[in-house]
Design a protein around this nucleic acid. Sequence first.
RNA 1: GGCCCUAUCGUCUAUCGGCUAGGACACAGCCUUCUCAAGGCUGUAAGCGGAGUUCGAUUCUCCGUAGGGUCACCA
Length: 410
Amino acid sequence: MSADNRNQVIVRIAPSPTGNLHVGTARTALFNYLFAKKHDGKFLIRIEDTDVKRSEKKYEKNILEGLEWLGITSDVPIIHQSKRTEVYKKYAEELIKKGLAYEVRSGEFQSGKSTWIGMKKAVILKNPKREIVFTDVIRGEIKFEDTPEEIVILKSDGTPTYNFAVVIDDNDMGITHVIRGEDHISNTPRQIVLLEALGFNRPVYAHIPMILAPDRSKLSKRHGAVSLLDYRDNGYLPEAMVNYLALLGWNPGTEQEIFIMQELIEQFDLGKIQKGGAIFDEKKFQWVNKEHMKRLPEAEQRKILLKSIENEPYIIGEPELEPAKIPWKKNSKERTAELLEGAEKIIEEGGDLLAYAEREGKGDVLWPVRYALTGAESSPDPLTILEFFGKEKSLSRLKKAIIMLKNEQI
RNA sequence: GGCCCUAUCGUCUAUCGGCUAGGACACAGCCUUCUCAAGGCUGUAAGCGGAGUUCGAUUCUCCGUAGGGUCACCA
């Protein structure tokens, strides 16, 4: 490990604004954030927007909004690579002067598939093939047989290539630990080549495993919500997302499963990160969300509950009732009709339905009322639905159920 | 295909050579008349294969197998 422990820890998340914030990126950001806070270091956000064709402001906005939703914010103003073009050029010129790099007209560059662009020149670093070895905090020693003989550092349009920009920025910003996705392992040797050419120090590397789809393939749009803010829009708690994401690929070695951010910061340990990829399990995430929900004040829970049923089919459309399902357990249709009529009266008068249910038998009253209102096997409790619908809509649904029961009796 | 990474219940994982392999989610069954969600209890379920090291391997080494990543003037 080459980092100097006396120095303050500085880490970063470096997303490129070419799509919405992905759960994988969010977790990488979280691990960086936890590590920084744990060691009283700094966490910063750098937008890698050197690809002008694919970068869009709306994606940048989405990414920043998603991170903020999770409570992950940059300790310094957000950096944009697109504003640092001159810096990269200067370093490239330096390399040319030292004889380590050379300019080439696009047509002369043979190993790329690209066709010719114009009269501008790209800059390429010369590199003797050699073995590169580095230490990864999570995986130990990683050895690469060789490195490419030519590495493009400046594109013909004057913008830096990814690897070049990363190495320069990480150095200029004093990044001590590069914590990123496993998909960057194969970039590491060429970044080391570049950083050595520039005379920089190596950061400590930690490559965290990927988040996988249920079929162990790469997580993508066809697997449902991979955009982080979709979860927010579906009513999930940011605390739950932080908790679940942290547990995907990491655990403190105890049996604790529910954490708040502060606890994660205290217990986080890079060395305890898993090596293999992990599947994002929607079901377990829901459970984590539920656990966090329980910790909320009741009024808050109720608000979220009401919002979450907004789009249920039984709320939007008319429920289709099955007469046989209206009575509670073994209760008779006649008795159930009576009780529903009783409930109807109470609702009309604005009386206390719960008190009525307690008098007549909770299940016998509450089940048919709830079922009459929703037609669903499971839903929030009838009192909540009642509040949601209001008197008029509730009464009309109750009447339908009563008529249905009576017709059945004949 | 080359290079690289990985491999414990269906899923997330514990185990840092001694295991009757533990927990959680999911699933199944039972209980709970404060409806449903919930809650409680119980149960089913795992060390990829083959060598080696060792008194002893899930744990260490090698080979195989499988999965993943990466091979751009994208990031």
